[in-house]
Design a binder for these strands. Structure first.
Lengths: 242, 242
DNA sequence: AACCTCCGGGTTGTCAGACAAGCTACTGGT
DNA sequence: ACCAGTAGCTTGTCTGACAACCCGGAGGTT
């Protein structure tokens, strides 16, 4: 196995981790089975054992494997990839696409307005600061799966910014302006009621609410997102581990 | 800083990671601030840089820090520890205690019965296998916070097992019989309705349902747990990251 | 036959030093 | 005021070695 044949990635260990994830999900090793030792893997990928260890630590942090001193690395789960992994921060568009469904979104409103007190606090902006507030529904294969209320500080955008240019993923919008959200502090709630959402939606539905504060790598808050997922239309999964 | 003064842990890097977590949560470095470099940390703890790197990868996998090539390690969040971290698999008792509340539980029923078809499939046991099924409510400071339906294969316990000995945490019960759950494949749902739970509970409440299949390190399913958390009585948090 | 102790091979954890690759901030020029 | 180049710091990867640990088998005892 040559390194070049692996997919792209920022670091060598990340590419190897990605390849190992694929091999696990393809069923090359069944749950409970022992993976090759670090020495064998380093020979196979022709990298140092240190690099292999970094990749294996990535797998373990995702709950796919368990590595134990003196024993080896065991595969624990291989089915978790079908569902949206709550630990991974990615755009809703990518999340839906990963499930093999066609993502889409319909903006209901896009407006610049003064920030509310809660927003001022959570976004750490000055009083009276302006924000870009959007309301949109997210669809998968043309079925509405979620309603999202998002808020971005006006200061992120240049002076000549035109709200009407907003379209598609907010992650992409942020990155077009040089801002990259890497962490999101998330609260998870359950709720229901007819006041949630708009348009065509199930009667008496339950909603899974993800209340998120997105920040860049320096800890500066760059966006608030409150997303209501319609129960039953969007599988949320997670691999928990010790 | 001497290694001996750090808390206990299976490995050196785990002890250092735990210490760094404490230092982050204590506010020694504010979000956005750069932590000392790996070389400085290895000198401080008097361990090799490889060990420090392992500890830092643990922090990053928890979303507490972001490490970037050529730049350093930045602290991103320090407030996430107040809430239950969904990524960490631990007993409900420990989770409640971590929030500074007094955990308790009331068993409503404990019974041995034949496994249902769904249970046979999820637990990978033979048809007609027996299971231990329990219903219980979980309390924090005497307030009911969740209802849990749990199922454990009969085969986990010895022949002379007496269901009436069941009490306290199911994790502890499993470990008393030499079984250690290390991974849980979890589905997250929102639901509501008066048919959920029993006894004193809010009218028209929403519930966050965690549907989990617990497995040991060899991938063998050892328990099913369906836990309904009463919305508003139990904060669920998560640090998502790229 | 059943049980126990010891031991050896295989595996991960840690160590040390070195070089490559990437980022930031400053310097010096235009 | 602006821009290119660079020095210095930081993380990523490499190499080789030894320590700590786990499992299963050999050999002995009961």
């Amino acid at each position: 196995m040559t390194v070049e044949s692996l997919g792209s990635g920022p670091t060598l260990s990340a590419r190897i981790a990605a390849d190992l994830r694929l091999r696990i999900e393809s069923g090359e090793w069944t749950p409970g089975e022992k993976m090759p030792g670090e020495h064998d893997l380093s020979a196979f990928y022709q990298v140092s054992r240190a690099t292999v260890r970094t990749a294996l630590q990535d797998l373990e942090s995702r709950g796919l494997t368990v590595t134990r001193h003196g024993l080896g690395t065991l595969v624990t789960a291989q089915g978790g990839s079908r569902q949206a992994d709550l630990r991974r921060l990615e755009s809703m568009t990518d999340t839906i696409a990963r499930q093999g469904r066609l993502p889409g979104m319909v903006y209901r409103s896009i407006a610049l307005r003064a920030a509310t007190e809660v927003e001022i606090s959570k976004l750490a902006v000055g009083p009276g600061a302006e924000v870009l507030a959007t309301e949109r529904s997210l669809t998968a294969d043309s079925e509405t799966v979620a309603f999202s209320y998002d808020v971005i500080p006006r200061a992120v955008f240049p002076a000549e910014f035109d709200p009407s240019e907003v379209s598609g993923s907010l992650f992409a919008l942020l990155e077009r302006h040089g801002v990259r959200a890497v962490v999101a502090l998330t609260e998870i709630h359950a709720t229901h009621g007819e006041h949630i959402g708009w348009g065509d939606r199930p009667a008496n539905a339950s909603y899974l609410l993800l209340d998120q504060v997105h920040s860049d790598s320096r800890g500066v808050p760059v966006a608030l997102a409150s997303t209501y997922f319609i129960e039953g239309r969007f599988p949320f999964g997670l691999v928990r581990h010790r």
